[in-house]
Design a protein around this nucleic acid. Structure first.
Lengths: 245, 245
DNA sequence: CGAGCGGTTGAGGCATGTCAAGAGTTGTGG
DNA sequence: CCACAACTCTTGACATGCCTCAACCGCTCG
């Protein structure tokens, strides 16, 4: 692990409040690894041996069942993932693959579990992290059950705009097919939906989103702080897809 | 609060490992309340002032958006709910209403937050509880995105059978319309789906479920431990709908 | 006994998925 | 540098899953 990386990790809410000595202990047993693009680094069902910290690149978390597959989240630097599985000492519920060349820090789950028993500040950080992540997934479930696909797309596009400072135009942070899977629809349906949304105040130009009538788009998306944020810790990471650990 | 209720609460994983003195302190600042059937006791968006412990009755957690509404979970004794909101000192993401006459213990959120900073055993319990709940919701999201409504019904019916000891016949723990909402479908669609499932090894007689061909039903449901369990702590409570806090 | 509610059934329509084909883009190896 | 392969994205045609609206049954409870 490069010395200049330690402050980046230390800066995470999860590691910010623990003692310096304990942080160093935890990092001493961890190690870095680089993965090429498109590599499945975690397979759902495997025992959760390591907390993963993304330092560079991007990781897709996805789930599989009966030959089907769907994107659950995208994790970008600097964030952690699969904390809950590590804590429960249970199998991963999701698989992970790299979307780009990616650099990861692996923190042994057993050391992690030992550490929050020793360092009560760290325990409090873990509690806050898990509570935030829990709320993110609940929000996700709400949008899936309460909004149709058209509304999900609209609210995603609007929310992304706010995340980049309310910009009238921005570039999608992920491929459309991945976004479609994340939003629970097929790429074809997504493509058609984007076309019809031109009548509702948003237009695409390749991967560029152009909001032509924010009021109209807002009327369709009906943003709700109990679904779309404002976010708790850790749910924004640049991909627009909340971190699910 | 009745003295005989304390051991029931103490028995929960969440409160099992803290010191007796601290448990008593926490309970001393809590109080019981009885609600009639059909009362909305928590409204989404309200500040989370109390952790709720269900001692008797049943509580539905549901979410609303733009005039629509869906059931997120049902909580039965003895369980807690809305832990995460209390920890984050954030607004409730879900509303709650009683399905029956219900007795609840209210634990002030501020005392709760103070307590896990003082009692490190309690902090570890909170961590485990949150991690379990997180995993429950992820499972929930997986079933919503990976299975169609027919498969969700089939796997629910099969899973319930296992929860009551692999019984060939059992009574639905909740009304069908509520179950439909929980599974993300309309009551009409649920009714029709149950009818067609007769060809797949399960038959209804009112609220009674009769499994006529377990193998056939299993082939349709394709149970998966990464979606359907085996459960972590706290996800089984008799309703068959995982507790979402 | 009648109102209200849960459940069921039918008819019809819309939303979404599936299959297929083609355009555009990217990456790779000759 | 170009040709080709692989992939994303788009579009069309079609099938179907699911919802909506409406009516009716049966039960419960005031």
């Amino acid at each position: 692990m490069r010395p200049e990386e330690l402050p980046e990790i230390r800066h995470l809410h999860l590691f910010r409040d623990m003692s310096q000595a304990n942080f160093e202990t935890l990092m001493a047993s961890s190690y870095a690894q680089n993965f090429p693009q498109g590599l499945e680094m975690v397979r759902q069902g495997d025992p959760a041996d390591f907390l993963h910290i993304v330092l560079e690149g991007a990781v897709e978390l996805f789930a599989q069942w009966s030959g089907r597959e769907c994107t659950m989240a995208v994790v970008r630097p600097v964030s952690t993932f699969i904390l809950a599985a590590c804590i429960r000492d249970a199998p991963y519920l999701m698989s992970a693959r790299t979307l780009e060349r990616t650099r990861i820090i692996l923190v042994p789950a057993s050391d992690l579990r030992a550490m929050f028993r020793r360092d009560s500040e760290f325990a409090v950080s873990v509690i806050n992290e898990l509570a935030s992540c829990y709320r993110s997934v609940v929000r996700n479930a709400k949008t899936l059950k309460l909004r149709n696909s058209r509304e999900r797309v609209a609210s995603y596009l609007l929310r992304q705009s706010l995340l980049v400072g309310g910009a009238q135009s921005y570039i999608l942070p992920v491929e459309k097919r991945l976004l479609a899977s994340y939003l629970g629809m097929t790429p074809e349906n997504m493509s058609r939906t984007l076309r019809t949304l031109e009548a509702d105040g948003v237009k695409m130009d390749g991967a560029r989103v152009i909001i032509t009538d924010r009021e109209k788009l807002t009327a369709l998306a009906i943003p709700d702080r109990l679904i779309d944020g404002p976010d708790d810790i850790a749910s924004t990471n640049g991909s627009g897809l909340p971190v699910a650990e």
